[in-house]
Every structure is written in structure tokens, then in C-alpha cells.
Nucleic acid binder design. Sequence first.
RNA 1: GGCGCCGUAGCCAAGUGGUAAGGCAGAGGUCUGCAAAACCUCUAUUCGGCGGUUCGAAUCCGCCCGGCGCCUCCA
Length: 504
Amino acid sequence: MTLRLFNTLSRTVEPFAPLAPPRVTLYTCGPTVWNYAHLGNFRTFVFEDVLRRYLEYSGYDVLHVMNLTDVDDRTINAARAAGVPLQAHTRPFAQAFFEDGDYLRIKPAHHYPAATAHVPQMVELVSRLLARGVAYRGDDGSVYFAIDRFPAYGRLSRVERRDLKAGARVSSDEYAKEDARDFVLWKAARPEDEAVGAAWDAPFGRGRPGWHLECSAMARHYLGDTLDIHAGGVDLVFPHHEDEIAQSEAATGRPFARFWLHGEHLLVAGTKMSKRYGNFLTARDLRDDGWDAAAVRYLFAATHYRKQLNFTDEALSAAAAGAQRLAEFRERLLSAPSAPPGRVADLARHIEQAFEARMDDDLDVAGAIGGIMTMVREVNAEIDLRGGMSVEERQTFLAALDRVTEVLQVVPAAEAVPEIEVTAGPMPAMEAALGGALPAGPGPGEDLRAWATRMAELRVACRRLRRWDRADLVRRLLEDQGFEVRDTRDGVRLVPGRRTPKGA
RNA sequence: GGCGCCGUAGCCAAGUGGUAAGGCAGAGGUCUGCAAAACCUCUAUUCGGCGGUUCGAAUCCGCCCGGCGCCUCCA
């Protein structure tokens, strides 16, 4: 059984094998750090994280590079608007990107090359293309790639030719091109660029790199001429990835990437999530609203990566409930009493086999979770039937469960939910409380948690005294403040109610 | 206009020729003083519509309807 992946180059699912096993070179297009990356961007990054983790699960040694685009029109415009140098503006957003990645449990890439730190590599690449005659200097001083000198142009996106709409506005730099379809490798410096330090000297003129250039130059610098896998969002297929192929292959004469993987868009109310439409949400929004990253990942995992996913609060809540069930199950597994061995070891084998079968089929994560959930039910039924499991069974199953969930990262951290637990201790003077009015919320100078703890103690006392009416009243007050009341064998546990986003 | 994708239960969704995974919600049950949580059971004769191919189709082909994406910055 081997991993099979949908390759955009062939538009078919192909068996995957790296050029030099066990090493797999993986290049993924990262964010443009002009602002916070939104959740749609992160859908792609999470997909790539699952890809990376599954390759590692499968025994490969992955070398992962993700670029940071820190010089382009948007970063320059934003820096100018803020009146600061380019990097003063981009650095905080790069930092925010890493924070969001940590929150979403994305495994860090081995390298995060920034475009501005690799200008020499890009200059070298442009020089090669000029020397080979596939690039030329336009009248405006910029350097362009001549796509009619690269016959394979269009192979990835299957765009034979870009038909400019009749009457479409042609931007000024279009006039400098020999062919309207040519794309810019190096943009001649403008005063606006100089103002924020976004211009560099080069043998072919002072300027800044075109967008596509950085990926070709940096991928080659860190991973060599030919990548095993290059991944990104579908919107990059054309022109970004098409242009990368043209630049790289024209320069090296070798295939640029063997597998091209593209993740589909995240939609909101049926439309692509985008800064431009204003319908976006950031990872930090979800974090600040109290959502566990596992819920977000579960939501993404529920839909295949090549299918559009419509984001809704309802879907996120449903995903959170599913993820929570996995956490509860894991807790139950840990605390199940000892019993003679049954069939749990068999189920452990099965959970991994089913997982691999689904994942090997072009990363069918949704199918993989279905298999895990089925095993959850089977093991629960075993615990119910036999009262527990053997120590060996527990270890075996837990190890298998952890191996598969390590790839998906859909199990909320056990300690993620701040709880209040009160057990029956020495009985304080409760007589008054058992009769008088009860505080419906925190008193002056008292925080919610202190009040809730006080009320929980009260409920324990009421229950011990069998004053069910008072115990019920206390529970209602706690529930009104958003706490879920769970009686335990010898006390009470309060769990903050499930959260919903304030707005999206 | 060109290229491509999608349409499966109340909601989300897997499944690409062999007779419908899974999750959420809902119903019943176990547990509980009552609850909550957890766990168990149940919930689509049917896969947008109409034709066709086939012993057999959600899965292949054609047409139609509905939705989305790319073709320009974009994950």
C-alpha cells in the first residue's frame, strides 16, 4: 500500500515516490506578510501540515521550506501608508503568522526564507534567464520573461493562451512587454519603492523582484533544482505556479517540481473568503473566542482538501463537538478499569490499517476520521461490555490512537478546558445558605470564578443534606452564568459552557 | 466568452461500477435524587433532474437545472 496523490500536472491520482528516498523535499507557498493571514489561507497551511505529517508518519524524512513574501505591491503600499520602512511593517505580521501557526498546531517548516533576504539568489536567476535569451529588458527598465520562448508554458494550468478581454484596461507596464502574456521578473525601481527601502541594485538595473521569482530562487537554493512536492492554494495554479515552472525550468533545464498539490478554497456564505471581499476571519479571532485549535482542524479535516469548504458557525460548533468526543474518549481510555483481555488489541491494529488506507488515497482525511470514530464506538462498547480492558490493550490502543491523531491534530488538549472541581470537604456553616437568598452572580470585588467555586461548594453541601430543591436552585444559577454542572461521585465539577464566536 | 470543480439524510460529509462510512442535531435507553456529561441503540430502498450504457450506477456517457472557482492581486 503506497501513498497516492492527485498531481495537478497530470490531473490524476498518481503513486507518490520521492526522487531520493527517504528524503522528501517539500516547498509550500507561504503568506504575504502585509497583514494577518486569514482562515482561508490557513486552510491551505493546515492541509499542507497534514500532508507533511502523513509523509513523516509514512517513514519519509521531509525537508520543508515555506517562503514569506515580504516585498510586493501590498507590502510596499502598506508600509508607505504606515510611513515606515518595508521590514518594519512586515516583521510583526511574520511574527503573527508564526503565532497563528502555533495556535493551529502547524508543525514549523525547516526554513522560512523571506524574499528580501534572498535578493542575490533572485538576481542570479534573472541573469541566467537573460543569458539564455528567455528574458529581456523592457523599455521601462523592468525585466520580463518571454513565454513564447518556453514551449511548455501552460502545461500546469492548461491555459493555452491568456485571452485579454476586449477593451480591458491595460496597465502601463503592459506597453513595455513584447507580448501581453509575458510576466515580470524584475520591476524597475520607482520612487515609492525607494521610499520604503524596497529596491536593490542588480546588473540589469535597480529594482525589486517580481512575485513569482522568489519561489523559484528560494526553492532552488534550499531544495535543489527539482522538488518532490510543491503545494499551495488553487488560486496559485495560474499564473503563479505556471510562471515559477517557466522561470525555473528555463534556467536549469530540469523539471521544477514532480508533484503539484493544490488545496481548495474556504468559502463564507458560498463565496471565497478573501480580504478583498471583507468576509474574512483570522485564526486569532477564533483563538480569542475560545475555540480549541483541534475544533478548527476537525472542521477542515471533515472536507477533502480538493473540495471547497463553506465556513459557518454551525459547522465549527459541530466540529468542536466531534473533537470533544475524541478527547472524552481518550480520557475514558486512560481511566478504564482493568479487565481480562478482549478484542481491543485487534481494534488497535484495525484503526491504523483503516487510517492508512484512507490517507494513502490522496489524503482522504474525512474518511480517516470516520474510521477513527467507528473504532471509538467499538472500544466504548467493549468497555461497557467487559467493564474495562487489560493494561496491555490500553497501551496498545492508546499508542495507535495517538499515532493517527498525531497526524491530524484533532484532539483537544485535555487541560484546555478550565474547570472548577469541588469535592466534599469539611462542612462549613451552611445553615444560613440553606435558607436565605442566594447570590445570582459575583458579589462586589468577587470574580466569577470565586463566586462559582462558592456556589459549587454550596451545591455539594445541599446535596449531602438532601436538600434537592436548594441544590437545583444553585445549579440553575450556575447555568445562568454559563457553567455546565456535572455531579461527580464525591463533589461537583463546573465546566464553562461551549463558546460561540462573537461574530464573523 | 474560455478552462475547471461541485450538487449524497434536518445540517456537514466519505464513498468513482457490486448494492449508501462517519460527525452534528433529533428520538429511545443505561447512569443520576432530578439533571448534566459520558456511553449504547435507532434515524437515506436512496445519492439535483431526465435519458442512455451495463447482469448491476451515487459511481461511466449525454442533456438540463442549481452553486462555486480560475482566466487580474490572491492560500
